[in-house]
Amino acid sequence: MPFPPPRPVTAPAQPLPLRFRRPDGWPEPSSDWVAANQGWEPPAGWVPVEGLAPAPAGWSWWRRDDVGWSAVSAAIGARRRRGVMVDAVVFAVGAVLTLIPATLHLDIAFVFWGAVVFGPLSLARTLAGMRHADRTTATLVRSRAAEVGQTLDRVAYADHVTAAGPGALALEAFLARRRIEAWSQTGSWPADQEHDGVAERFRITDDPRLSRRHRAATVVFALVAGIVLVAIAADAYAASRAGSGATPAAFEPPAAEHDGARPSG
């Protein structure tokens, strides 16, 4: 009997940021339900299907997946760190170019009020965001979960309408049945309860359009700062030339005027 052909090795799918902790005796929820309810805290006494005992008081419903959570929080942290660097550089350059003319007593003056005023505010906001990185990550995960849930419901209902035809359920009735079907004592669910690629919806990627806008803004700021720096240097050079051309005679008191009259006495 010939050996089967080798299968290509694929990278494992990204896990979800949070794992659901079901109380003892509860069935396993489907992967779609877990993805659509990431971080959701059920009210006291909530049970997914009838006949189950409520969870103990103070039950912790979720725990972080080391890989899935890091995939989200690390991307957010990288964005925050880049933001801190950009804000600090913009403020420093704006402050220097604002103070140089005043320090050298030049005839020209530039006030980069946007960089001087909003730079520290943006820097403080970014630093505060880094301090609350876990809160930011949790908020983002819940927001993505809501979007994923709406998408999965819409896709599952479209498949149901196509398969059932005239006998399709109304949307509300279908969603109610789908929520019950998401819990299985045997660990097997209908096909519409497990969609591929759901966890990838929680992957944080850089928006190339946003990167282009940042690059364009950086180039514009650099050009303006360069032009101002050249103007400051030219004004300082002109001032130094004017100062070096003055002679001591210019600072002597004017000589007494002689009208030809002899002094009396």
Score class of each variant (00 low, 15 high):
192 D>Y: 06
72 V>L: 10
144 R>K: 11
95 A>Q: 14
56 P>A: 07
79 R>Q: 11
70 S>Y: 04
261 A>Q: 10
119 G>S: 03
35 A>S: 01
115 A>G: 08
153 D>R: 09
180 I>W: 01
103 T>N: 09
265 G>N: 11
176 A>W: 00
66 D>F: 09
131 R>S: 12
251 F>Q: 11
237 Y>I: 15
254 P>E: 12
224 V>C: 07
92 A>N: 14
95 A>W: 07
107 D>N: 15
45 G>F: 10
94 G>V: 01
141 V>L: 03
52 L>I: 03
37 N>T: 15
235 D>T: 13
112 F>E: 15
115 A>Y: 00
75 A>C: 07
229 L>W: 12
247 T>Y: 12
231 A>R: 15
265 G>H: 08
114 G>A: 12
27 P>A: 09
256 A>F: 14
11 A>C: 04
245 G>Q: 13
215 R>E: 15
142 R>E: 11
142 R>A: 14
57 A>W: 01
73 S>I: 13
216 A>V: 09
64 R>H: 08
145 A>G: 01
134 D>R: 00
124 A>E: 07
167 G>S: 09
260 G>L: 03
233 A>I: 11
145 A>E: 04
21 R>F: 05
97 L>N: 00
109 A>W: 05
20 F>M: 01
2 P>G: 11
114 G>C: 04
243 G>N: 12
62 W>S: 08
